[in-house]
Each structure stands twice: as structure tokens, then as C-alpha cells.
Design a protein around this nucleic acid. Structure first.
Lengths: 173, 173
DNA sequence: GCGAAATTTCAGAAATAAATGAAATAGATG
DNA sequence: CATCTATTTCATTTATTTCTGAAATTTCGC
């Protein structure tokens, strides 16, 4: 049993380390991903100091990333009665996590792209020259597609877990 | 008409610059995104030297990113008869672009995550202690979800443009 | 209000990613 | 096979991002 605890600790540490490394690929920083991994697999909420201790990072780093995760909605702040300091607890429901990440990605990746495309489409509207018309056509196609993708993302974000699973199951066959 | 050409050039330059800046958000580097924007809106294929000139970048940088885009499948190499040097031409079909980007993201973001989750799930299989069982349950849920998402991405990647649009249209309502 | 404990901020340091430019290699031409 | 041109590689430089640690600020019990 003591042995099991040992294996668990090691597995969890590897999970945190690797999830952190993955974070880099997803465009979020390593520490943020590590904190998320730490708290998703934590039994109880942790304080800033406990996070600092567990990941061996500075206060400023821990603080900034904890607050960023709270801003995303991936962590909640918990206050224990009679205690002054804040504790942090992770959202553990995978469908909720997915929706949050999807929403954030849409905001950071899709919406700014739409703005650019929209502006360029407007600027080249009604051009007469062949290169001008070709440019406008290409931008418009991109714009339409991204706009459409954006709407799809919105709708998926509104679905209940069950509904989404059924829909996806039909697709996967 | 000369005026139109002026406006076109400026719009295109802004598009390239902003698409490049967006690239940073998508986890690809600025130059790669700029080259992609440049060639998506180019009438004819361009050579390495023309890309260097248009974006004011070094040969090494142009070369590396052109080849990376070719590896993704977003650019094709074109050889003109009687010409020694290579020209590059962009895939302009938005649905094809989408499928390529989705495939690449799956490979870089989903698959490594699945590996990590799979390993951690196996390591904690059959644990007896309460924390061990809880850890296993959480990892398993993540694993299942990511695996499912991976399958969905595969299926979508196989759809024809028309089919995908119909499906998505039903969803958007 | 005062002091202790926590949170927040931020300038500078460290780490990481990307770009340069020149040298090495490969490929064609006569 | 000698040469000219294009491609590729890579050590170094530059730019960007992230982290640290200490100072400033806030918060709360007394």
C-alpha cells in the first residue's frame, strides 16, 4: 500500500511535468499548464504557497498563473471559514473544461482573424482589376469559412454534454 | 485604376502583416504565417528570392519556413520548364486548408496528450487507496474525452466540403 | 488606526524561440 | 570535370517570452 502511494506520486509528477511540456504546444505557458494538471489531480484545494512548494516556482509566477486560470474559469477560489488565505480548486468536469478552452481559443484565434479578413474584404470590395477581384474573392472565401466555423463553435459551446456526445457518436459511427 | 492598385497593395500588405501577427497566437511563427498569407494572395507562384524581397527576410528564414509549409501541405513546389529554381504556390481551397491545419494540430496537440493520459491511466489501473482511485478516475475521464475528440477530428477530416457544410448548417440552424 | 498576513505588481534576469548570414552541399550546364 | 547557380545547414545573434524576488499594496483582526 505504501508502494502504491509511491507509484501514485511518481505517476502524478510525470503527468504534471508532461502536461506542462504540452502546454507549450497549446500556446499557454508551461507553468499554467502544470498548475492546471496539479489541481485537476488534487484531492483538496491548494493555497498559493502549496502550489509554489509542489512545483518549485516563485510566488509571482504562481500568483500570475493561478489568477490567469481563474480568469479562464478553469479554477475557482475557495475560502475556508476562519482562514484568511485563498485556496484554489480545479474544474474537473471534462466537458466544462473543453467548453472553456474552446471559448478561449475562439476568442484569441478566430475572432481576431475574422476582424482582419473583414477589413480586407471591405477594402477590396468592388475592385475592377483582375488582381483586385482575385484578391477580394480569396479573402471573402476565407472570411466566409472562418465566420461559419465561429458560429459552429458557438453552437457546440451551448450544447449539453449528453447532446454533444450523441451528435458526435453519430458522426464517429 | 492606378489608385485601385495602390489600395490593393496596401490592403494586401496589411493582411500579410496581421496574419503574421496572428500566427503567434496559433502557435506557428510569424514568418511562416506571413509567407502563407503572401502566397495565398499571390496571383503567380513565387521563388525564394521573391519571398525574401517581399517580406524583407533572410534566405535561411525564407527557406526554412517555405519548406515547413510544404511539409504541412499548405504549399506546393512548382518547377517551370527551362528554369532551375523552385517556385512556391499556395493551396487556396479553404476546406483543404482547414483539413490540413486540423490534421497538423491533432498530430501536435491531441496525440501527445493522449500518450501521456494513456500511460498515466495504465500506471494507476486497479489502485486500492482512495487517492489512487480518484486519480485514476480523473485521468481516465480525460483520456476518454480526448480519445473521442480525436476520432471526431478524424471523421471530419474525411468529409467532403459539401457534406461538412450540410452537417454544420444543420447544427447552426 | 496598527500591525500581521496575505495578495499584487513589476523591473530585471533567465530561458526559449526565431532570424541572420555565411559556409557547405547538391545539381545542372556546357 | 570545372563552374555557376540554387538549396540546405547551422553557429551565432537577436527578439520574445517567462520567471524571479523584492517592494508596494491590500485586507482583516484586534
Amino acid at each position: 500500500m505504501n508502494d502504491e502511494q509511491q507509484v501514485l506520486e511518481e505517476s502524478r509528477e510525470r503527468f504534471i511535468a508532461q502536461w506542462g511540456a504540452l502546454g507549450t504546444q497549446w500556446g499557454i505557458n508551461r507553468t499554467m499548464a502544470q498548475i492546471h494538471a496539479l489541481l485537476m489531480t488534487a484531492v483538496d484545494p491548494l493555497s498559493t504557497d502549496e502550489v509554489m512548494e509542489a512545483l518549485q516556482i516563485s510566488r509571482g509566477n504562481a500568483h500570475t498563473n493561478l489568477k490567469e486560470l481563474v480568469a479562464w474559469g478553469l479554477l475557482r477560489i475557495v475560502v475556508r471559514k476562519g482562514e484568511r488565505r485563498e485556496y484554489f480548486e480545479a474544474e474537473k468536469d471534462v466537458w466544462k473544461i473543453f467548453r472553456i478552452v474552446a471559448r478561449e481559443r475562439k476568442r484569441r484565434e478566430i475572432e481576431p482573424a475574422l476582424d482582419v479578413l473583414h477589413q480586407c474584404a471591405a477594402e477590396s470590395e468592388g475592385m475592377k482589376s483582375a488582381p483586385g477581384r482575385e484578391y477580394h474573392r480569396q479573402i471573402r472565401e476565407l472570411e466566409e469559412f472562418v465566420h461559419f466555423a465561429s458560429q459552429v463553435a458557438d453552437k457546440i459551446g451551448l450544447l449539453q454534454h449528453g447532446t454533444a456526445v450523441k451528435l458526435a457518436a453519430k458522426l464517429v459511427g
